[in-house]
Write a protein that binds this DNA or RNA. Structure first.
Length: 271
DNA sequence: CCTCCCCCCTGCGCGC
DNA sequence: TGCGCGCAGGGGGGAG
């Protein structure tokens, strides 16, 4: 999926095209996403005006009248802005038709994504309420990372991917940030010292910010709202490069698996 | 509380 | 060519 940079790239594309637009229709062709698409979405969203596009963690938030549309792209989701009459393709599960002759269309082959309708303060929604800080905010830094990781025996990579610790860092960018900081992904989180926490927090920010700049990473399904793939894949230093030489020291990039999830690291650079 | 494991789902690339 | 298997960017839930 889309990790934070891909969701943020989507948000940036979305914001100007939804701001002030009235929703004219909601069409749900497949309700069985991660959570069932609520019927209230079709009842309450049409006729409202979208205020813009926001993001919290990997969720997109579209405030609309009395509520907020919550969209998650899961592993394989993409949200596109298309002309009204665009033919429906496979896995095109939900359309929000707007009053400018375009629609927002969610395509999600694996259906791990979600489209929800929440009323009231969205930050109180159970999915958002317990999330950790945004990685690009000041709240996330080396001091914070050091404090929350004391006594933790889990791998530092797992900690980076734990949404209650910091949001938005998924499998690609966890590997990339750990490489950039020279920290071994399997090291116990509690045994990463203060200075290396500083480096790691800085690396997370740099890796994510650069990926946003480049429109996100497309491995397979991800596309921006204009349908174009992101340009960050060629910039990945270790992810997907097992057996190839490390760009810094030339050692062979190693692949390890946990739970059918890949981790890439350089045995020469990362301790 | 923390950590690990499994699951949800579809498609694709690989080896046989 | 066809088939079975493993794997893919997320994250919730439950067992221990």
């Amino acid at each position: 999926m889309p990790e934070l940079p891909e969701v943020e790239a989507t948000r940036r594309g979305l914001d100007p095209s939804v701001r002030g637009r009235r929703v004219t229709a909601v069409r749900v062709r497949e309700r069985r996403l991660r959570w069932p698409v609520p019927e209230r979405l079709e009842r309450e969203l049409p006729g409202t005006v979208l205020a813009g596009a926001e993001r919290r963690a990997k969720y997109l938030l579209l405030p609309a009248g009395p509520g907020t549309v919550l969209v998650h792209l899961g592993m394989s989701g993409s949200l596109r802005r298309l002309p009204d009459d665009t033919p429906i393709g496979p896995h095109d599960h939900v359309d929000l038709a707007l009053d400018d002759g375009h629609l927002l269309r969610l395509r999600d082959p694996r259906r791990f994504g979600a489209v929800m309708w929440v009323t009231g303060d969205p930050s109180l929604d159970p999915r958002l309420a317990h999330l950790g800080p945004e990685p690009l905010s000041e709240a996330f830094d080396g001091a914070y990372l050091h404090a929350v990781s004391r006594g933790r025996r889990a791998r530092v990579k797992s900690l980076l991917m734990d949404g209650t610790v910091v949001v938005g860092v998924g499998n690609i960018y966890a590997s990339e940030a750990l490489f950039a900081a020279g920290v071994h992904p399997h090291r116990a989180a509690g045994r990463v010292g203060r200075e290396r926490c500083d480096r790691l927090a800085a690396a997370v920010k740099e890796v994510l910010a650069a990926a946003i700049e480049h429109g996100g990473t497309t491995l397979r399904d991800y596309a921006g709202i204009d349908g174009r793939p992101g340009g960050n894949a060629v910039r990945l230093a270790v992810y997907g490069r097992s057996g190839e030489p490390c760009l810094r020291c030339g050692a062979s990039v190693r692949l390890t698996r946990r739970d059918a999830r890949a981790t890439y690291h350089c045995p020469g650079c990362q301790r």
